[in-house]
Design a protein around this nucleic acid. Structure first.
Lengths: 152, 152
DNA sequence: CGTCTATATTTGATATTGTCAACACAACGA
DNA sequence: TCGTTGTGTTGACAATATCAAATATAGACG
């Protein structure tokens, strides 16, 4: 598992991306960006804390919440809704949607045919200005269909 | 405000609906169904507890969670995701989606052109069997656009 | 290179949301 | 009416998110 899903970025490359987004460069921000980039998305705040800690840097949850809020504001990460009680975050690259398994809770990416926000326009445009449309598909994933008693 | 959004149902009418769904009829279930029916949806569990209490019946949150879980299983109510940290429930009538205002957090209904689940099929059907597709539209509602400093 | 200031991080407390287990109670059918 | 089985209740608990105040640091400027 030395080589995660995405190729690693040097600290400098991450720092450049932060600066491009108009953000100050700090060690904690670089660390959070790295784990978000290397894992293939769908990280909760606590998972970020743990992954960063596994690399030898420990930061309080509050710090990660602050960082995520900044990243969200700068458009660096997107917030994926996977149901109540948990917010998942991932690097904002291609716009896509999510499939959530009712049995094991796993989250899968579902490509968006449009690929950019807001990908869908609601019927009622008099409600307000829509800038994003996120779809949650629910059902049972193939893994859980084949082994009914499997849990996560 | 004596007459809420939907016309009131008698206890008997609600009891019949519960029995049709194969559920036992209890006072708490009737009370929960009533507030869900009379308010026009988008109720959190705590809001249900408060609305029921305002009518003179106090039930613990746990009871409402149990009831909601039963209602969900029986298909009486649908769970609407409006972002992390809060699950909203409403009587399952017409399938529809939701618009969430980024500023004030208000939730608006958005009609679904199809009107029934699952209304959308994902590109990747090899992930699993999709039984529902729920769309969250995000943006700024007209109320918040006109008065920027308004907070809910 | 060193100082300054706005910005970030840390800390601890607290709110919100949802879950677990064990016991008491009530609805429905016999 | 009685008994079985599903419900409601209770209290503790876990997970998630937020607030305020004190401290530390990044980046800019001299």
């Amino acid at each position: 598992m030395d080589q995660p899903v995405h190729p690693g970025l040097t600290d400098e490359a991450i720092a450049d991306r932060l600066r491009e987004a108009g953000l100050r460069v700090t060690k904690s921000r670089v660390a959070v960006y790295r784990v978000l980039h290397e894992s293939d998305g769908h990280l909760s705040v606590d998972e970020i804390v743990e992954l960063v800690a596994a690399r030898g840097e420990r930061y309080p949850r509050m710090t990660v919440y602050n960082i995520i809020a900044r990243f969200l504001g700068a458009g660096l990460v997107m917030q994926a809704d996977a149901g109540p009680g948990r917010a998942l975050y991932e690097i904002a690259e291609r716009w896509h949607h999510h499939f959530v398994c009712r049995v094991c809770g796993s989250v899968y990416d579902v490509p968006c045919v449009v690929g950019r926000k807001p990908c869908l326009e609601p019927d009622a445009s008099d409600i307000g200005e829509v800038d994003e449309a996120q779809i949650i598909f629910r059902g049972v994933c193939t893994a859980c269909t084949s082994s009914p008693h499997h849990e996560n």
